[in-house]
Amino acid sequence: MGAGTALAAPTAPTSSRLSATGVTESHAADLTIDTPVLLVAGQTVTLSFGGGPGPYTVRVLPAGQVSGQALKEFPATNNTSLEWTVDLPANTPVTLSVTDDTGQTAYTIHG
């Protein structure tokens, strides 16, 4: 399972960074989740996912704790992407996951 990603120290007084590789690990044959290379607190990013049957549920989890309580869970959607205004504090390590209608889950991997 992925180790996750972590928010880096702010580069400006009003922004924090979260880096991710955009690489995915899938537990289902076709289900994937792709993340941007860089997530900046307060800025909106697009998370893309799909491959399995919708609706999809996307969660932000503590890094490496795929069965842990979600730090954030987005409402289920039949869309294959969503926009997220990053709202986590700096230095918060996370793993992103997507679960499809069959219960299959894919996770991001921090490289």
Rank of each mutant, 00 (worst) to 15 (best):
G51L: 02
P13R: 09
F74V: 09
P10C: 13
G22M: 11
G111Q: 06
T14I: 08
A70E: 02
N91P: 05
A8I: 09
L38A: 12
N91W: 08
A63D: 04
S81W: 07
G50A: 04
P75V: 14
W84N: 09
I109M: 07
M1P: 04
A8S: 13
D34G: 06
L96K: 01
G111P: 04
E83Q: 15
P62H: 10
G64Y: 03
F74D: 05
Q65W: 04
S19L: 08
K72P: 01
T21D: 06
L18F: 11
L47D: 00
T5G: 12
V45N: 02
T92D: 10
I109D: 04
N91E: 15
N78E: 10
D34C: 05
A76L: 13
V98I: 11
Y56V: 03
V58R: 00
G64H: 05
S16C: 15
T105K: 14
T95S: 14
A12V: 09
N79T: 11
V37Y: 06
T14S: 12
G22N: 13
A9V: 14
A12M: 12
L31D: 02
P89Q: 12
V86K: 00
L38F: 09
V45G: 01
T11L: 11
W84A: 07
P93Q: 12
P55W: 00
S67M: 13
A70M: 07
T80A: 06
D101W: 01
P55M: 11
V60I: 06
V94Q: 12
A41D: 05
G4R: 09
F49T: 00
T95C: 09
A70Y: 03
G52N: 03
P93G: 11
P53L: 07
P89M: 09
A41F: 08
T92H: 14
T95L: 02
D100R: 00
F49N: 00
E73S: 15
Q65N: 10
D101C: 01
T80K: 03
T11C: 04
A28I: 11
P75G: 13
L96Y: 14
L82T: 08
L71R: 10
T35I: 09
A20W: 08
Q104L: 12
I109A: 07
